[in-house]
Computed example of a mutant assay.
Amino acid sequence: MLLIIVAVALIAYITFNFFYQRKIMKQLTEEDFRAGYRKAQLIDVREPNEFDGGHILGARNIPLSQLRQRYKEIRPDQPVYFYCQNTVRSGRAAQMLKRKGYNNLHCLKGGFKGWTGKVKKK
């Protein structure tokens, strides 16, 4: 019985997070992302080794693991375009910034793994 309660609670939590992230962060197709990211703050929330392996031109690397300490590097008065490998970390980053008062939050639908544009590697 306890296992069923835990499973239901976990499913409810995951479902809530999914819909909450969709509410606070607009998921953009690659075409829409390309149209707006040059006028926004482009943030790659992947870890530095992932960023060094390839990233979108013009992106800044602020890993999700460091965002709590570094969020003030992101201006709240400008749009924020996030991406990660597949959108999970982007959603968490958006939740964190929303709690800090940021509102104009966007992410690349499908994440970096679906990106077909120019990539810079170190």
Rank of each mutant, 00 (worst) to 15 (best):
N86R: 09
F19Y: 15
K120M: 07
P48A: 04
E31N: 05
A40S: 13
Y13K: 06
D44T: 02
S90L: 04
P79C: 01
L2S: 12
L57P: 00
A35L: 06
Q21E: 14
I4D: 11
I24K: 01
G58C: 00
N86V: 11
L97H: 07
W115H: 05
R68Q: 14
F51D: 02
R22C: 01
V6I: 15
Y102N: 10
D32W: 00
K98S: 13
K113V: 14
R92E: 12
F51K: 01
F18A: 06
L105N: 12
P63W: 04
A12C: 07
K23W: 14
G58E: 00
I74Y: 07
N49D: 15
F33V: 04
K122N: 15
F33M: 00
R60V: 06
A12Q: 05
K120S: 09
F18Q: 10
L64G: 08
N86Q: 10
E73C: 02
K113M: 14
Y81D: 05
L42N: 05
F112P: 07
Y13L: 08
L42Q: 07
I11Q: 05
N103D: 14
K72I: 08
G117C: 04
K26M: 03
L3E: 13
Y37T: 09
I4H: 07
I62G: 05
K39V: 02
R70Q: 14
P79M: 00
K113R: 15
F112M: 13
G53Q: 10
N49R: 02
L67K: 06
L64V: 10
E50Y: 00
S65W: 07
A9N: 07
G54W: 01
E50Q: 12
I5A: 14
K120E: 15
I56K: 01
W115S: 08
Q95A: 14
H106N: 15
P63F: 03
D77K: 01
E31D: 10
L97S: 11
K100T: 11
Y102D: 11
L67S: 06
F16W: 15
N103E: 15
H55I: 04
A12M: 05
Q95M: 13
K39G: 11
G54P: 04
L108H: 08
L57M: 06
W115D: 11
K109Q: 13
K109T: 08
V88H: 12
K26G: 05
N103F: 09
T15S: 11
Q69I: 07
I62D: 11
L3Y: 09
A35Y: 05
S90Q: 06
C107H: 14
A59T: 03
R46Q: 13
V80I: 13
S65D: 12
S90P: 06
Y102K: 06
K72N: 09
Q41Y: 00
G114T: 13
I74V: 11
K113I: 14
N86Y: 07
M25Q: 11
V88W: 09
I5Q: 10
I74P: 08
F18W: 12
Q66L: 07
R89D: 10
S90H: 08
K120C: 03
P48K: 03
R60N: 07
N17H: 03
K118S: 12
F16P: 03
G114V: 06
A59Q: 02
Y81W: 06
Y13T: 09
G114D: 10
Q78H: 11
H55L: 01
